[in-house]
Design a protein around this nucleic acid. Structure first.
Lengths: 156, 156
DNA sequence: TATTGTTATACTCTATAACTATA
DNA sequence: TATAGTTATAGAGTATAACAATA
């Protein structure tokens, strides 16, 4: 009984995760960008990382990030900025167009997930929020640090 | 305040979704298979669909499914079975190796998500389960209603 | 020598369009 | 003609290995 209930929770959470990230992918698709490009723009919203840091944030090989950034740059969404202190280093930053685009996708996505949660009365939504926070905080702690990163879409 | 709380819920749910599907991807990666291959094997666990049905289930073009199945077949995970009633039709089925592999990935994934939820007392896990179910049921219903005219997954 | 990043290469994944073979 | 599936093609995304430039 307990095991059964536990499994149901796992299954439901997995399904819900597919639905939620499917919504993000769909909204990104509307702006003709892929999930990984969306994640790239997402992490750049509050950072100007080096290529190496970007690779760590996105959990990709640096060579993969090279291609990713080339394609985003070609579309005018990001820019490479050479470091002045270390001439090997390049920092990546959002262009205005990139910032506008990612804000748009984020806003539409948040609105859509909001609608999804609208079926729950405010009190239950608050309960859900609290439960999710508990899980996330524990997860973050056990993973090491990174406790209060706002919307770190680099999550894995 | 209400809007803020709602946004927090949305954000938390998005983060949690990344964590959960990241766990699935990591477990699949351990068995050297991609997310889409995992989804393929997953839908085949209780179905033997035609290529066309598979395309609808995975929300992919039929040509994409052709390649997907070719690569899975090459690895001995699925098999093409020609239909006896309509010689144009091919059905796809799991091999024993494919079934073993997908069971393994699913079991590891479920265990990992279970551990993630272990921080919640049983009563709160049950509450979470109920809330998720409510959201999923509503989502399914609204999707079902929308899909009456045609079964085309046009979103993307 | 060690590092930062790019390039060469090979593979998966994806869609569009054209095709084959059935129906 | 219409449908089921494959193939040709082109492009994104990914990793490994080799490389250039800088430290």
């Amino acid at each position: 009984m307990a095991a059964r209930g536990q499994l149901d929770t796992v299954d439901g959470l997995a399904q819900l995760s597919f639905v939620v990230l499917g919504m993000l992918e769909a909204q990104a698709g509307r702006q003709d960008i892929s999930m990984v490009q969306t994640r790239l723009l997402g992490v750049l919203r509050d950072r100007t990382p080096t290529m190496n840091e970007l690779a760590a944030l996105l959990d990709l090989d640096k060579s993969s990030v090279s291609g990713l950034v080339v394609r985003a740059e070609r579309r005018g969404l990001v820019e490479r900025v050479p470091s002045t202190t270390d001439r090997r280093v390049v920092r990546v930053t959002l262009t205005d167009a990139g910032r506008t685009l990612v804000s748009h996708v984020a806003a539409r996505f948040e609105a859509e997930v909001s609608r999804l949660l609208d079926v729950l009365p405010a009190a239950e939504r608050a309960t859900l929020s609290g439960l999710i926070s508990q899980v996330l905080v524990t997860q973050a702690t056990s993973r090491g640090i990174e406790l209060f990163p706002d919307t770190d879409h680099a999550a894995r």
